[in-house]
Nucleic acid binder design. Structure first.
Lengths: 160, 160
DNA sequence: TAATTCCTTACTAATTTACTAGGGATTATA
DNA sequence: TATAATCCCTAGTAAATTAGTAAGGAATTA
């Protein structure tokens, strides 16, 4: 389990998708503008998210990305694992003769802690962020990605 | 909240100190050997841990580091915060006009999540690792840093 | 005094993060 | 069909962080 800005980018981007999932695909350029990350870097992150089955790409005008699964099946841990390659906690691989060949006690403890952290983040799914009524309120108050997409099309084409 | 190998080094090192706290100071060279980290890098990490008041240095032969507070007052979050400078989650600082000047919704959500993560790691203290009976067993089964330190002194000086 | 340890600084190597550039593939719309 | 918008892919590079090397000083024990 590792947690860096890379992981944060992925999580916030996925939050964006989750919140606007019912309003059609979200474009990377929207996320890029909103979060101040370069478009191409986002594309690289989303390549990993796509490989993990967490998002689906929709090409062409009006396209973008949408969630690859129902939001209640996508945990924060899933997202972080997809983009933040985990750290190897086994540095003393028997060779170092650390503590008479036994694996370092602290490594054992670290793994326990790391597992707990994983379980914690695995219980938090994207659906939490949608359900929260306060979140909804904030979401509606803002000029969201969804509404900006909507504005791209003339009223008639939406009504039809 | 950020979590990298750097933070793991610090946490496992502090676990080591906590487990052997009653047996006198733990030297960095012991930790260096056990965990396969360079001595000088450990020294840099411990400089930060010392600044945060999490450890006390004891100079001279037989010296080393010991906990700066009782283990039940040192949380995993404390340790990580001391060495892993936290990430700034506010990239769109109003300038980007993200969502009509409002702070990005996802940043708000991220901060909530980050706070939850902090609270989680802040409730896990070093005393957990000492109390755990299985941990004690493993600790005693191994040639621990403590016993290696003990072996440095002749039996009589321990008895006295 | 000599050895052992912490303590500090400066520099460098390795790795990861983030970005730039260029192009291709797909698709909605005109 | 043409065009534009989007995803998609690769290669390279800049910036930041992580990790290590080197050198020495300060405190303390024996």
């Amino acid at each position: 389990m590792k947690l860096s800005t890379k992981g944060r980018y992925a999580v916030t981007a996925m939050m964006d998708l989750a919140i606007h999932d019912t309003d059609g695909p979200v474009t990377l350029s929207d996320i890029s503008n909103c979060q101040g990350i370069s478009l191409s870097y986002l594309e690289q992150l989303f390549a990993k998210l796509r490989q993990a089955g967490l998002v689906d790409g929709v090409r062409g005008p009006g396209g973008g990305y949408r969630l690859g699964k129902p939001p209640q099946l996508i945990s924060v841990a899933d997202i972080i694992m997809a983009v933040d390659e985990s750290i190897d906690s086994t540095r003393c691989k028997g060779n170092l003769d650390c503590n008479k060949g036994e694996r370092c006690l602290t490594h054992h403890l670290w793994n326990d802690l790391s597992d707990q952290l994983y379980d914690f983040l695995n219980e938090i799914t994207l659906s939490e962020f949608i359900k929260n009524p306060e979140v909804r309120k904030i979401s509606q108050r803002q000029d969201t990605t969804a509404s900006r997409i909507a504005n791209m099309f003339p009223p008639r084409s939406i009504a039809s």
